[in-house]
Amino acid sequence: MSHTFGTGSEQGVLTDREIAEDILTGKKYISNYYYAPAVLESMDPKLRSTFQQVHNNTQSQAKQVFDYLNSKGWYKPRQADAQSVNDLRNAAQESKQILSSIAGEISDTGGKSRVIGNQNIYSPESSSNLPGGGWQSQSYSQPLQTGSAWQSQAESQPFQAGTGWQPTYSQTPQWTGTQAGEGQSGMGPSSLAQWTRWGGQPSWMQSGTGGLHGAYGSQGVSGGYSGYTGYGGYGSYGTGAVSSPQSFQTGTGWQPTYSQTPQWTGTQAGEGQSGMGPSSLAQWTRWGGQPSWMQSQPGTQTGQWR
């Protein structure tokens, strides 16, 4: 039996190149599909730390195997062509312009939100009109909170990080984790590509700046889906049946509070993992059932994830 280092292989015998490629594939797989979500789904800090450490090790090992393949000339990633780079620059520029316009609108309104629309989207008739899901609504004057979920709270409250369940001042627990799959929690759609799965663009992307669009909602009372109207309307997109301001809403990140506003605080389909709660309703059975607040009447002080 003869071996070759790189090219060609006998039946049933792997070359060094094939072995290295297989190892790299295995490392990528276990890192992406096991450790990355495991870190985000772990509630126990020690276990989370272990998953994080193993994840880091695995990524480091993958790099070593890649370096080996690359040094042998067996894995040479292609350079992006000029057109792709140009498209990338344009996309980056477009993003900067969008962010710039948002900043301008914030200053234009002096931080005061405007609410449009009187539609009670909690009603069964109107809730079916909500596409996508996940854009946080806010009907009160609030600074845009970055680095966290699109959060809305009726009163100024410190952002509570660390878990998926985030009670507000009203003691209402709020799931801020992800939906199925990948992604970061609490950040809304984790990529532009995901927006299509969210039901399309938010309205502010479809219109000029300063326009009031995309606010599905009432005047911010009793859970109206009012968009981030002060900023030209971060449309409050949502899915799922919503029957009342206090009722639990399934399948989306919209979380009603007992106060006023529904809150999207998680991501939608796909990636990520966040927090420590179930990432979808389907997962609840694996998590041991409903949180206690779902079994209680609105207004009662529950909300501890147990």
Partner: peptide, 12 residues
């Protein structure tokens, strides 16, 4: 362990 943690541990 939660059920999710247990699942990821076993798979890992």
């Amino acid at each position: 362990l939660t059920q999710t943690e247990s699942w990821y541990l076993a798979e890992s």
